[in-house]
Simulated scan of single mutants.
Amino acid sequence: MSEPAHESEPVRIPDHDLDDLVATVTELVTESRKQGETLARLIDEQPPQEPVEQADPHHADGTASPSASAGDDEPSAPSKEPSSIFILALGGTAYAEELAALTNWVHHLLLPVYGREIATVRPWCQQWQEHPEAVARLHALWLAWQQLTAVKAGLTGPSTWHRDHLDPTLLQLRAADGPFGACTTSPARPSHRLLAAPEPGGI
């Protein structure tokens, strides 16, 4: 059944709400940068690894080089630091904290400004945090936003973010056959269902 025509109309923001929206965006930019600084500081303040008897003096962090530990009988313990700031590389508390920060950005900046109305050809899911692909794509979009809206990104940073990151992400997420394809297609009928992923092929 086709959706009513009004569902494809763009959302209009009243003029009297624009000042509040600008203030919210400014506040989120500041908060996002503070979170980035906090994350960088936490990474720098990670507790040191167990001391190694022979450390490579050329390593700035003081860890042993592969040649220094090559003769050890016991394998070295894997590092507990994440190898990436991407949310899919995180786990436990780190993942939960990053998802909370991402949710704040999605709900207070992305959706109010770029959400557009839900329609059959443009589904959305209020429980997007349960869709791994959505979490991954939105987190990548948020990371790019933090970098490309900073002063050092230059005057074309925001334009680059829209062209190279926002538009492709929304086209993928909100496509009729995207991750929300089985979820809400009408604001009056909210729904949520995870689509089955292909089974890994055997060797």
Rank of each mutant, 00 (worst) to 15 (best):
T38C: 12
P179K: 00
W145Y: 07
R12W: 07
E3H: 11
L28R: 07
H107T: 13
V29W: 09
D20Q: 12
R174E: 05
A175D: 06
S76A: 08
K152D: 15
A96P: 09
A77E: 13
S159E: 13
R116Y: 06
V11C: 01
H192S: 00
D56G: 05
Y114V: 07
L138N: 02
R33E: 09
L39K: 07
A64L: 00
A182M: 05
L148F: 03
L170R: 05
P78S: 00
Q49A: 12
D61G: 01
P158W: 00
L99T: 01
D19N: 11
Q129P: 10
C125T: 08
F180Q: 00
V135Q: 01
W142F: 09
K80Y: 11
P198M: 09
L42S: 10
R193E: 06
G36Y: 03
S84Q: 03
I118W: 00
V106K: 02
E199G: 10
I85D: 12
E31N: 10
Y114Q: 09
P112S: 01
P82Y: 01
H108G: 06
V11N: 04
G36Q: 04
A182I: 05
Q172E: 15
E98V: 02
E74V: 10
W142V: 04
V106Y: 01
G92M: 04
H58D: 14
L109Y: 09
L141G: 00
I203Q: 15
L195P: 08
L166C: 08
H58Y: 12
A94S: 06
R189M: 10
T30Y: 14
H58P: 08
V121K: 15
H6Q: 12
H59Q: 11
A150E: 04
A150V: 05
E45K: 07
E74N: 09
E31D: 14
T184I: 01
R12S: 08
V151S: 13
Q126V: 11
E81Q: 15
S69D: 04
A23F: 01
E97K: 13
R137L: 13
H59S: 14
E9W: 01
S76T: 07
L18Y: 07
G202I: 12
L110I: 05
P75L: 02
V52A: 09
L90S: 05
L102E: 02
Q49H: 11
P51D: 05
R163V: 10
V29F: 10
A96N: 12
A150T: 03
E199Q: 15
S76W: 04
A176Q: 10
E81L: 15
E7D: 14
L143V: 11
W105L: 07
Y95S: 02
R163T: 12
T184R: 02
S8F: 04
T120M: 13
H59L: 14
H6D: 09
R163D: 08
S2M: 14
D17N: 07
S191F: 05
A175T: 04
W124Q: 06
L90E: 03
L138S: 00
T184L: 03
T63H: 01
T63E: 04
Q127T: 12
K80F: 11
